[in-house]
Amino acid sequence: MSDFKTARDFGRFKIIEITRAAKAAHLASALSCYDMIYYLYNHYMKINAIDDPKRDRFILSKGHAAAALYVSMYQASLLSAEELNSFGSIGSILEEHPSPKLNGIETASGSLGHGLAVAVGMALANKNKNIKNNNIVLMGDGEQNEGSVWEAALFASANSLDNLTGIIDYNKWQATDRSNEVLALNPLSSKWESFGWQSLEINGHDLNAFRDALNFKATGKPKIIVSHTIKGKGISFMEDDNNWHYRLPNEEEMLVIARELNQ
């Protein structure tokens, strides 16, 4: 499989451009999970129409990475260039956290710990209706702090929701500190196993590994993909530097970024 490098370089540059134009935060958070969201929208999920009841469903539960979602949707022709470029501007429906008022957004996210339960509800409903779709939710590692994540996790395994896939963007950082130091996150994969989920651990920037994990059939139980990622992935001076949770690049840094991303 091609690793879609050209498309991903373009997408990363777009994320940085629109985030910078909007003077928005969370650039590094978006770059961390962008590869997976790009792959989901452009090479994996089946969305014939955004209101098709049989569509695959995706929730970006770590809503602060909205720029990665919008760029991926744009690349999948679910958003126009004009819409994408309006990100964060006055009157735009593309806010810094996804709004349910935007077509194609399945639920409001931004307050952490909400997305999994909503995805569980979708998976349960679709299972009852015998709709054979994928119900996918991407969470942050910091988001695993929220108790509501674990409430929903227990319900999903109790109800054998094998049409539900959780993804954790495990970049080892939360807003102000290392995610394994703030709370006792490790061992994350076996925590999910002990909650009754099938757990798979991959490099979240390796799209072949991601594809295989998505295709893995976990019979009778929900599946979690613990994806090891790098915050700020793709830009040499941003990678694993948590300052870019809030910072934006200046003109000089933009020249380096353009060069590194072949733009």
């Binding site: 009841p53 399945e106 639920t107 710990g113 909400h114 999994l116 339960a117 909503v118 995805a119 569980v120 509800g121 979708m122 998976a123 349960l124 409903a125 679709n126 209706k129 709709i131 108790g147 509501s148 409430e151 929903a152 227990l154 319900f155 109790a158």
Partner: peptide
């Protein structure tokens, strides 16, 4: 849904988006 009201409420919302 167990003694898990936050999840119960989110699950209800998810089911509502799927036509229930």
């Amino acid at each position: 849904c167990g003694i898990a009201e936050a999840a119960m409420t989110g699950i209800a919302a998810g089911m509502a988006t799927a036509g229930y």
